[in-house]
Design a protein around this nucleic acid. Sequence first.
DNA 1: AGTCCACAGGAAGGGCAGGCGA
DNA 2: TCGCCTGCCCTTCCTGTGGACT
Length: 427
Amino acid sequence: MIYIHKEKNEIFSEHTTQVKDSEMNIFSRYAEQKTVFRDKNVLQSSFIPEKIEHRDAEIDQLVAILAPILKGYASSNIFIYGPCGTGKTISTKYVVNHLNNAVIDIGLSNLRTIYINAKMKKVADTEYRLFAQLLREFGCSIPDSGLPTNAIYRRFFEEIDKQNQNIIIIIDEIDTLFKKIGDDFLYNLTRMNNELEKSRVSIIGITNDLSFRESLDQRVKSSLSEEEILFKPYNALQLRDILTNRAESGFIDGSVDGLILNKCAAIAAQEHGDARRALDLLRVSGEIAERLNSEKIGELHVDMAKEKIELDRVTETVRNQPAHSKLVLVSIIRLSEVKKQPKSWSDSRILTGDVFELYKDICAKNNISPLTQRRISDLIGELDMLGIITANVISKGRYGRTREIHITLESRVKENVLRMLKEKYSI
DNA sequence: AGTCCACAGGAAGGGCAGGCGA
DNA sequence: TCGCCTGCCCTTCCTGTGGACT
C-alpha cells in the first residue's frame, strides 16, 4: 500500500521506515552540494534571451516582412534556411513574441501564432498529423487516426475562417515533412488565403537543408519563397559573444572564465558554427564540474562534456531504434572489428551483402525471423541518416553496385553501444 | 562495344492496429 | 459490429546503374 502525506508531499509504504532525520536522506549530499549555476535555464538552447547576438540583419528583415500584420494585412510567406544552430528558430520566435506584444499594445487581438516542429515523431510527421496538430492548437479534439485526410483539411479551413484572424504558422524542419509526403501540403497551405473569407494565414517555413528549396515544385517554390532569409553559421568570435552573454546570467561569478568560453566556442565553430552545440557543451561542462564538487569549470570538464554529449546522443538514438535496426548496427560493428586486420584491401570494406549475411546469422542465433535484403538496405540508409554510420554507393565494376559502409563512432561509444545491445541479444 | 554483377531504390500492395460513424 | 479510414512496417517485383571484365 502506498500513502501520500498531503502536507509534506511524501510518498511512503506502510512497510518502510519514514525518513525523519535529514542526514539520512539519500539526497542530502546533493542538496548541500555547491553549485556553479545561477540560472541553468539561460543555458538551454531553447531559451529566448532579451537580445539575440549577431542576428540583427536577419531579425530586421523578418520584422520588415511581418510588419504589415500590424495594419491588419497578411504578411508574405517566408522561407528561412541555414545550417543547424544558426539561430533560425530562436530568432523567429523572438520576432513573433515581439509582434504579439506590439499587436496587444495597439489594441488588436486577432493575431494567432502556431509553432509546429515537423521532425517531432508521431506529432506532425505526416499530412494527417500536421493538420490534426494544427487543429489541436485551435482547441479541437482530433483522433490520432481514423478520419479521412480531406475531412481534416475541411475542418481546418472552417476552424481558421471562423473568426477574423491573422494567423502565422511556423513549420520548423519543414524539409522532413516534404521528404516524407511531398509538397502538396505546402501548396495547399500557401494558397489558403485564396479560399479564406475572414482570416489571413502566413507561413514561415524553417529548414536546415539548403538544397530543399530546389527540390520543390515551381508553384510551391514561388508561393512559399515570397521572401527568403539565409542564416549563416556563427564564427568562433560570435559564438564566444553568445556564450559570454549567457554565462553572465547562467553561472555564478567566477565559476567560468574566458578560457573555457573560448574552448567551447572553438569546438562548436569547428562543427559548422553551431550555437546550440556550444551552449550544450558549456551547460554539460557545468553539470560535470558541479557533480565533481568543483567550484569552477576546468578544461577537463569541457573534454568530459564533449565525450558525454556524443555518448548520450548515440546511446539514446540506438536505444530508440527498432530491433532489426539494432541487429543491423551490431552486424556493422562486428564486421568493422573483423575487418580491422584485412588480408587484402577489398577485405577491409564493409558492404551491404556482408552486413545482410551476418545479420541473418545473428537473427538465427536469437530466434528472430530476418527481414528481406530490400528492407535491410533501407535500414542501412536510416542509420546513415542518423549519423551513426556513413554508407556511400560505390560500383565494383562487374562485381556489382553496393554500398560501402563506415562506422563513424569512437571506440568508447562503440563499446558502450555493444554492451547495451548484449544485454538484450545474443551477439 | 557488349556483358555481367550485386546491389540501389522506386512502386505497388498486403497486413496490422487503432479510431470513427452509422 | 462493421465498413472505412489512417499510419506504419514490410515484402515482392521491377528497372536502373557504374565500371570491371571479355
